[in-house]
Design a protein around this nucleic acid. Sequence first.
RNA 1: GCCGGGGUGGCGAAAUUGGUAGACGCAUCAGUCUUAGGAACUGACGAGAGAAAUCUUGUGGAGGUUCAAGUCCUCUCCCCGGCACCA
Length: 950
Amino acid sequence: MKNYDHTKIERKWQKEWEAKKLYHAKTKAKGKKFYGLIEFPYPSGSGLHVGHIRSNTAMDIITRKRRMEGYNVLYPIGWDAFGLPTENYAIKTGKQPEKVTKENTDMFRKQLKACGFGFDWSREINTTNPAYYKWTQWIFLQFYKKGLAYKTKTMINWCPKDKIGLANEEVVNGRCDRCDGPVEKREKEQWMLAITKYADRLDKDLDDVNYLEKIKIQQRNWIGKSEGSEIDFTIKNFPEKVTVFTTRADTLYSAFAVILAPEHSLVESLKGQIENWSDVEKYISDVKKKTDIERTAEDKEKTGIELKGIRAINPINNEEIPVWIADFVLVHYGTGAIFADIHDERDHAFGKKYGLPMRRSIEPVFHASDHPIRDGLPVIKRNAICAVIRNPKDDTYLCSVWRDMHMHGLITGGVEDGEDMVKAAMREIYEETGYKNVKLVNNPDIAIHSTFFHRKKQENRWARFQYMFFDLIDKEKDEIDEKEAAIHDVVWKKRSELDNFFSVVEGEFVLNLIDTGDYIHTGEGILSNSGPHTGMTSEEARKKITEAIGGKIVTKYKLRDWVFSRQRYWGEPIPIIHCQICGYVPVPEKDLPILLPKVKSYTPTDTGESPLAAISTWVNTTCPHCKGKAKRETDTMPNWAGSSWYYLRYTDSKNKKEFASPKALSYWMSKKSGGVDWYNGGMEHTTLHLLYSRFWHKFLYDLKLVPTHEPYMKRTSHGMILADDGSKISKSKENGVNPIDVIKTYGADTLRVHEMFMGPFDQAVPWNSESLIGSRRFLEKVWRAATLLETKNKNSHKEIEKTLHKTIKKVTEDIETMSFNTAVSSMMVLVNEIEKQKEISRKDFMMFLRILCPFAPFIAEELWHQMGEKKSIHRAPWPAYDSQKIIDEEITIVFQVNGRVRTERKIPRDLSEEEIKALAISDSVVIPWIDGKEIKKIIYVPGRLVNIVV
RNA sequence: GCCGGGGUGGCGAAAUUGGUAGACGCAUCAGUCUUAGGAACUGACGAGAGAAAUCUUGUGGAGGUUCAAGUCCUCUCCCCGGCACCA
């Protein structure tokens, strides 16, 4: 046998597989099917780098395994080719985007084929192909007909450099996702898709799909569902009212202002009544001028202005409060209006800045963790005080140390019914410490609730502690009661000594209070100062207060409608006609596709119009409705459009009558299996493509055009491959390695094995060309193993057979959990074992080739045929391991003494526990460690170890 | 700030879910082969001590639970990704 010549082998089988249409998927009526999907690439000019093919290789392995398991497999590929990079390249070079796309896809196709991916090339699609985008336009028209596509004047994110409107998802930290330049706000007419209509289902239906948990979490955060109340505030002396949204209706009693977004409609309608209108107007125009970066970068200081002469009435207590506008209130979230209250950090800062009077209405609850209340016993409520007593002369604080309970705290005590709180505090201070002369310096109306089990009295307590600040006048004191003295000591502590002093659960709260004299509670708790609602829990109060004022319980989302138009050339034209008489008229479906016209200049204009607007022969048309003069929409779709439904097209990519036939859809995306079986892609698409395509799919489902309510059953994600210095691979840095270069020197199989072996699939790994050689050596060993076989072709070698079956088990399981790195490593162990034993039976080797072939399809196919097989290995069945053959007759048992390993021994598998323990205590290595000591306990972990405790 | 994911040899990493820490691979060192370089093969390879058997120590840090902790609990530091005025 010759040396392993990867170039020759890979060329040969690539041709052969193509000629035999080995990976072509046939749409059938029934039977086991598997639809594996990877994100189709954007064919950029720089070609694929090694990072791109990690996902493809993984899914290639999975789909190859499925084929061998008897599934009818669809593993398709295509091109997501509309978009900016191609257009920008066209502008720069003067080449037509179609031509650029053709060149790039040709290059990508070659690269992908060289990697040996088992794609069904017969179903290849391209989003820029009119036969494809006809259906993208068609789906848009369905959105339009259902009222989910609409044009509206809106403030959009505008990138002045790219001259393009951006979706929220394309703005990163106030900068353009593409060019990193600052983004401005511009008011523009834009086409929108009403994704918010589906917000609830996009959130809820995540329960029905098998996505990685982190993907679900990220989507849920993005959708941002929150439940709260809508509450109406009336405006004093005017008929208007303002509706606010809050998730914390329980804090309504501490509302100190109503704050509107500057763009709120009420501002305009009350214009005449606002006494300081010119100032307000100036504030609003200043806010509008700011970019997002300026708005958020300004050290987060809140700004606002009061609408003088306007007062709102708090519906819960008819209190009159001021009305403000502030730029931190967002017009597009909730109702664009809030009430401000002290229990919100931001509102509190705002109130403090502008000197607005504020009042508390929520008190925190602390549950003692070391002695919690016990079930089954009644809970006794108590009013109590807690005194912060400071000696101003040496800046020390009076503390209590309860001796037998190891409890450290301040001076506390119960309040008798009807007793004045301050007097009670004075009394407690005298009784507990003996100090006679203290004076109250601050009683800030701060209280906490504390639950605990009273160990002395053996009862459950719920105490409300009111905090007060005292200064010591002088140290004159009386002896305290003997009983008191026996329980606790009284000590003076410096502030610096207090940090780790308090043993109580509210320790941090107390320190904060001592330091600032204040405490802003932003969590839930017990209501105070809340009229009839005082004493309720936050949760209960939210319901009761909303009910009491006739408010509504509502759900709001952070998700916003999708800005769907771009003022660029290289995208799908939006199939709408503007008629002076009829308004917006959809292009009749029979006229689709609306083709992109040939154009001389692709350069966008700063007026914000697409280059298409300059082509009068294309723009001017007749209205399909009234036959009058009309103009075409010149905006194009964002490049997320084509990818929102491409997985549907794959099922029937050549269909001219429908985007895909119901027959093909119901087979490949059957109700039973629930859509694409497994979709792997990048985390960066979680809140973009993945969410968009779920939205489109649900819309099509509602039109009964697709069989499932979700497009993808299972979604996983790969970690990025980084450059060798750990930085991101980027075109500008030119730090990406071309897979073709690796294939030339080492072969595609080596590249594939290496990419899977590098590290955990879901984690980022830096590329390292040096370690590639390890994977190559592995394949060389496989090649040599076939040589061993020619001379020694006999029955199974026992050890090899055992390792083989263990390996089959490991690889079978690891592919399912995407633990490809450990799958490869277990095959390496097997091949090392074969080298060591210098033999393997033909039968065993053939089995090994079948688990290797998804990883290294070329070498496996070659050796398979050298063994005399006629059919492709990729159509052979997946091997099953024999669990009987995995069992070791001898097991290695570790002997430990006090948990430390002392020795290990090989023993027959069938020894009883008693026999093994006996072996352990009589072991020559063990004896010195236990000699002369009492054996307290012997622990036996079956098949693992014996631990002798002395 | 909030939500995720991490931290284990010189490096990429394993660890049956509480049971021999470092499988597998890279690099390195020694050896075999070779005119030489390389390739290939054999062996060593966390740190410290020792001629060796072996002992001690070791999974970001500090405590804790346990016969036994990389794994569980409490606190803490650092790195990566996402979101970020969302009421």
